[in-house]
């Protein structure tokens, strides 16, 4: 029953969020501000994570190929497809659920407990639309770029780690990353990223918006935002994979 209550309240909140904004110029400024604060500021962590993920995938693949009949260029292919299909969208999505999700939930939660949201409502402003809509638009817009960056960094770090460790030659790796490339995989991962971006922002905003009490409750809302958005990302990962990849 609890799930239905939250789903109903979440749906009602989203209806409020996607209603007509007060002023388009103000909305545009907010979207740019959120792109900077939630998107560009996440670039560093995305680069670092992707770099190490790509390197580890390459080394693990290379050291696990024991059969001499399996060519080593498969390491490059494996790294490329792993990054594109799963790591750059889902794993980076989970990391961003931690960083961006907790930031959104604590920001909106603090505004709730310090009556700033009430102040917006009393002024006649739709607080849900004013606070949440720009965040959703900003993250949905910027996350695909972060995913593309993550793919490139991961594949590049795989090449560096493979060559420097001597696990795979540069020629084999480059041949592998060019072999049997399926462009639809990029579309697939970008579709997943857009869904994940929406899940992270809307679920975290929901937790913050309905947070009542004090600092302790803001902390709890922030934790719930990360846990629930991560779980929903994992669930949607399965659903979207089934829908998009299975023929």
């Amino acid at each position: 029953m609890h799930v239905f209550f939250h789903f109903g309240r979440y749906t009602k909140l989203m209806v409020k969020v996607f209603s007509r904004p007060e002023k388009f110029r103000v909305l545009l400024n907010q979207i740019f501000h959120e792109i900077d604060s939630l998107g560009i500021n996440s670039l560093g962590i995305v680069i670092i994570i992707s770099f190490f993920m790509g390197a580890v995938i390459t080394l693990q693949a290379a050291y696990n190929i024991e059969n001499p009949f399996i060519p080593l260029w498969l390491v490059g292919l494996g790294t490329r497809d792993s990054m594109i299909l799963e790591f750059s969208s889902t794993i980076v999505g989970l990391i961003l659920a931690g960083k961006v999700g907790s930031s959104i939930a604590s920001e909106i939660g603090t505004m709730r407990v310090t009556e700033q949201i009430d102040a917006l409502e009393v002024m006649g402003i739709n607080s849900a639309s004013y606070l949440i809509f720009p965040k959703i638009i900003a993250v949905v817009f910027i996350n695909p770029f972060l995913t593309i960056v993550s793919i490139f960094i991961g594949v590049f770090s795989g090449w560096i780690s493979g060559v420097l460790s001597g696990a795979v030659s540069s020629e084999s790796y480059i041949y592998g990353i060019q072999y049997a490339f399926v462009p639809f995989y990029i579309t697939y991962t970008l579709i997943k990223t857009v869904f994940f971006a929406f899940i992270i922002t809307s679920v975290s905003a929901y937790e913050g918006y309905y947070c009542y009490g004090g600092a302790l409750e803001v902390g709890k809302a922030s934790t719930k935002a990360v846990v629930y958005s991560s779980l929903i990302i994992l669930l949607f990962n399965v659903i979207l994979t089934q829908l998009l990849l299975v023929q």
Binding site: M111, T114, E115, Q116, D118, A119, E121, V122, M123, G124
Partner: peptide
């Protein structure tokens, strides 16, 4: 209608409720 009327409201909250 409430939104329109609320533009005639001013409110001072206990903690000020200024936007941080």
């Amino acid at each position: 209608e409430r939104k329109l009327l609320r533009q005639e409201f001013g409110m001072v909250f206990q903690g000020g409720a200024l936007f941080d």
